[in-house]
Amino acid sequence: MLELETASKRFGALAALAACTFAVQPGRLTGFLGPNGAGKTTAMRAVFGLVELDAGSVRWRGAPITAAHRAGFGYMPEERGLYPRMQVREQLVYLGRLCGRSSAAATGTVDTWLERLDLADRARDRLDALSHGNQQRVQLIAALVNDPDLLVLDEPFAGLDPIAMGRMAEILTEVAAAGATVLFSSHQLDLVEDLCDDVVIIDHGRIVLAGDLDELRAAFPQRFVDIRYRGAAPDWSALSTVVAVEAKDGEARLQLGPDTDPATVVAIARCTPGLVSFAFRPPTLSELFRQTVAA
């Protein structure tokens, strides 16, 4: 388990991290969300000692992180980069060996991943001879060369085509299922909702929400009613329990006030003449995000 405890970091007048506390569980995928400049990258860098915290700590399995721990971590920085003129395979083996692995062990892992990501025939090419998409794959392997216990990825889905995104999601799920702790940041909330077990939402350097995604959604006081209807949309906003309405082309999503009695949902259904279907739902991750970050 990875834990940040009241982690704080200032850059001049800017508080990049303000007493951040959250935990990332092993065997689960954790999405790290927040607007640009919220402190995601700073928090991730702190895990690798790339940012020295002003206060607080980062702990791995209950102990402060040491160089020996980091040898078992994998990291994919937001700004991708490897040696452009170095051969792909040699470069990956080098990075694996920097983590303390033997040449044979690193080579074995690298070859397995090159094979899996269809790069085996490019192993001897220079990195800069590869397409952008293939370079992204090499970058992912660079984070996996030491079969990490903790995998931290900063925006791993940015710039990927849909097929590559699918493959990335598959690999992250697999690594987590094998017992590793996986934390990644993303702005693609729908994707995170589909993929992640846990989320951590950060805003202005503060953690505003963290935990099991389903539990967070259930615990959120706001409820939503999804309605499908025929004909003109009735004026739901007249109902006192309805806070906001989004209606378009026979589909509407009504936001109800906190702790609304489920009985009011029935009242909503009654005042919808051409009702096709309706459902009482907790917020989506996207709604959760907008509510917590805007607040």
């Binding site: 690798f48 790339l50 980091r70 971590f73 990291y75 920085p77 700004e79 490897l82 040696y83 920097l98």
Partner: peptide, 16 residues
């Protein structure tokens, strides 16, 4: 060059 190619962040995550 290491800084410009950004590889340095990958390296520094592994070594001082």
């Amino acid at each position: 060059e290491e800084k410009a190619s950004r590889v340095v962040e990958v390296l520094l995550a592994r070594m001082p």
